[in-house]
Nucleic acid binder design. Structure first.
Lengths: 122, 122
DNA sequence: ATCAATGCATAGAGTGTCAATATATCAAGC
DNA sequence: GCTTGATATATTGACACTCTATGCATTGAT
């Protein structure tokens, strides 16, 4: 009867990377990014609006994305697109994540190698 | 000339898991856990003492580890060992991490698939 | 006696994320 | 015209995790 704590903030620490990669295949506005990430992750990640927009502002302040309002369709939307620097950052962070994940993977391998049932001793 | 920000808190969000797995092969005291993690990660993770000890207290409060002082060697050390519940938790969190990592991996695959040079056209 | 390494611990600050809330537009139904 | 629900951006306050900085005490070497 252990409480689940990892329900909400699953993305912790990788949201920047996720959002950048969501913009990799073309400009999007916030709501679109939300849906794209949710779909791309098979429902695993659900980025809250209150999380996404401040994050986008931060990414823009870093110079990794640029935004432009568009109200030609009636509905006002703020489109974000990767800058060249943002694209480099995306690749850089992605590679970094891979190294990091490999490292954790090596540490966890022995744990995941054996079944939970074989762990009653100690 | 982009500033590196990921220098310090690399482990963000996975420290519990790392510490639990450090205890998987037998009891350790704090200082030993620090060294074990640093070594197991090839120097990638360096868990600060000020991070580790509060975390251990939390793990104990959750019932995942139990501690016992030992001063039979002159130097007083607080040994931590996994409880059965802690071992289950370790496996559970490890599996969860794998799913999570797989998910990110799928999203990043196209990004890492191509080289950074082939990305000038936004 | 002094100093570095060992060993555990707390305090304060920073950051990332969430929940809650606010505002405004559009489309649909009454 | 009015209301309602989905769309869309944004701010606020709170919370959790980690870091840095600091403190204290012991051990072993110089």
């Amino acid at each position: 009867m252990v409480k689940e704590k990892t329900s909400g903030d699953m993305v912790r620490g990788n949201l920047d990377l996720m959002v950048l990669s969501a913009l990799a295949d073309g400009p999007k506005y916030g709501y679109l990014i939300q849906n794209a990430l949710s779909k791309a992750s098979g429902g695993t990640f659900t980025v809250q609006a209150g999380t996404l927009y401040p994050l986008l502002h931060r990414l823009e302040a870093e110079g990794w994305v640029r935004s432009r309002w568009d109200d030609s369709t009636g509905r006002k939307r703020k489109w974000y697109r990767l800058t060249p620097r943002g694209r480099k950052q995306l690749v850089h962070q992605a590679q970094q994540w891979r190294e990091y994940a490999d490292c954790i993977w090596r540490i966890l391998a022995p744990v995941l190698g054996q079944s939970p049932d074989a762990m009653e001793s100690s």
